[in-house]
Design a protein around this nucleic acid. Structure first.
Lengths: 141, 141
DNA sequence: CTAGGTGCAAATAGTTTGCAACTAC
DNA sequence: GTAGTTGCAAACTATTTGCACCTAG
């Protein structure tokens, strides 16, 4: 079951369809979201021998093709998402590191204004917002 | 010229005021924003011998004390800001990596709603928003 | 056939940790 | 005096690069 969107995106650039590229894209879709390492793990559950280097290179490529996006939720590795995944905003707690996913409609107005005023087309779909969650909302000390 | 705010934040936790802590906080304020490495460089312009390890440890501490915050603008190292620095939102272009700083009033409504609906107190002051800037707004391929 | 892609090993970047020496209080 | 702090070296995690071999088209 080859993926039309992937095939066409690749072909339009004279790039090749490989097993690895299909596997990485499928893994991102299956997981919903994940770090390069997690995606590599998900691929490894299906076939062995796909190198982590290839996962990095493929994620870069897929991002170029606009099939995946990434955000930085922590100090650690980035989180990749399928571009056609359910859109959401991440509320990342500075204290407990917890991540809450909320619907992005909250940011639609802001995104519209940023586009109008700065010509900047924001990825509101996978925005990460840092702060302090309800549970951790206690003064420092 | 000792810093009242720093002294008190440290004292309230039984921690000590050291030259390194003053230097790192001053460097962040002076730079406006910077990566750990840049902050280390700024400190090194005043005194030699302050270790990069100490800069990392100090930035963690200052963030705990709410005197600095950080955001992830790129795949690379985080950017630290002085907490009392001018507030701004970063528009980070996915294509050219350029960063535009805009005023955060645009996000006030969204922040208010997130607080009301989820009890999440967002750091709108140093939000990073990813997307494509006006110059790079060209279809993929 | 050949430009593009992959795996592997090594290099690099960023950050953390263990520990002995040092110093603010 | 002593708990907190620092510097240094080593370890570690995440990512990138060089290159010979492989393969989709």
């Amino acid at each position: 079951m080859t993926d039309r969107i992937l095939v066409e995106a690749l072909r339009s650039r004279g790039l090749r369809l490989t097993a690895q590229r299909q596997l990485v894209l499928d893994a991102v879709r299956r997981l919903g979201h994940g770090t390069p390492d997690e995606i590599h793990g998900a691929v490894a559950e299906l076939v062995s021998g796909v190198n982590i280097t290839t996962v990095y290179r493929t994620l870069d490529l897929l991002e170029d093709l606009r099939l995946v996006t990434h955000t930085h939720l922590t100090h650690g590795p980035p989180t990749y998402h399928s571009a056609d995944d359910d859109r959401h905003v991440h509320l990342v707690c500075r204290e407990c590191q917890g991540v809450t996913e909320v619907e992005p409609a909250l940011f639609d107005e802001a995104a519209t204004r940023v586009l109008a005023e700065y010509g900047f087309s924001a990825d509101v779909e996978h925005l990460a917002l840092f702060g302090v969650c309800a549970n951790c909302a206690i003064p420092p000390g």
